[in-house]
Design a protein around this nucleic acid. Structure first.
Lengths: 196, 196
DNA sequence: CCTATCTTGAACTGAACAGTCCAAGATGTG
DNA sequence: CACATCTTGGACTGTTCAGTTCAAGATAGG
């Protein structure tokens, strides 16, 4: 059982990420991680460092993976902000509908726990939210919308997107989640039409 | 030091509530509770039962206290849904601005942790969200809005209200939180005016 | 002022925790 | 086949956890 690494780092990180995502930092023990990944404690420590380091790596992985998908969604509706934002929300709605990953959102959950997490982890979660807002601001920065409005709608949309994490954990139905999104979309549509 | 209770139950529950609210269930130890309340472990157990029972009691206290404030806000704008909902959001915005209590929201945070909390606690948090939605539905059930719209806006507003908890923990400014609310208010205003 | 009653503080218990260590043994090289 | 190298599993450490126990002593009633 040695000589070469006996596992695929990406698969292990995915398993750890899902475990943290489902149960949170505090309620995930190293035994949980060992069980979820199939690795024993020594291998986890030698490959990923301590619990904080592994969590940070999982959070980064999550932020990059879904960040890419959000980015892609936003640019798929290029030039048409309404379609871009709809595609953006669709990423979240589909993730919540996917039975292979937990409800909620690792970033939202990390943000909620900032008072008890290490500064590095808390900072990373806040950064992820800020990056999300920047992406949205760019997608909304068209002739159809005043600059300040782009900023404001970006803030609103980031928040509504996070609210889906809370509501999905509160057992809201897919239909209810769509309703939440639809009303924000109608507000955006209104703002775009009053100018365009 | 005995004969009569040496403490005020309400003050103790408030202290425990704030502790849970700030740090969450998992990151609050009985030592933390003992420190926060000034009571020792025996007194906590004899007066409130185990950690789960105390948490549930704090959650109920939170739900009732702020539930009353939300209720009051909604009825303060009687007949005028727009004013009622604005007052509703104001309760949350002022709570977040209050330096005497933590950011975030005990209900939102409990909802986020449903996968690792006891069923009784998880159920109570989900109930609290449902009650909030019912309150909003009632306040929105006017001639100015179709019945289905009242339901839909209630769902949206509950979600946006929860999003303020996440965003406040992600260090959003008061101004940003107000922007989030304002855009939902504009959507509601639009829906009301297109009928009234 | 005496006694039954009740709160309280501190010590205790067994379990779970994060993190460390090392012998066993599989691997790749020569 | 032999040896140096590196991963791995499991045992171990010290700490912290939730929950229990109980003697010390304060209180209220007679």
């Amino acid at each position: 059982m040695a000589g070469k690494k006996q596992f695929d780092v990406d698969i292990v990180l995915d398993a750890a990420m899902v475990q943290f995502w489902r149960a949170g930092y505090a309620d995930t023990s190293l035994d949980d991680l060992s069980r979820a990944t199939g690795l024993n404690r020594s291998s986890i420590y030698s490959s990923f460092g301590d619990k904080d380091s592994l969590y940070l790596r999982c959070l980064n992985r999550y932020a990059v993976r879904y960040g890419d998908r959000y980015e892609q969604a936003l640019s798929s509706g290029a030039g048409e902000p309404l379609r871009a934002i709809q595609a953006f929300f669709e990423v979240t709605l589909q993730r919540i509908a996917d039975p292979d990953v937990p409800d909620g959102c690792l970033v939202a959950q990390t943000a909620m726990a900032t008072p008890v997490l290490s500064p590095a982890i808390a900072t990373r979660a806040i950064e992820a939210v800020g990056l999300q807002r920047a992406r949205l601001r760019t997608a909304l920065n068209t002739a159809e919308l005043a600059e300040g409005d782009a900023e404001n709608y970006a803030t609103h949309i980031v928040a509504v997107n996070q609210s889906l994490a809370v509501m999905s954990r509160a057992r809201a139905s897919q239909k209810q989640l769509r309703t939440i999104v639809d009303i924000s979309m109608s507000a955006l549509s209104q703002a775009l039409h009053s100018r365009g």
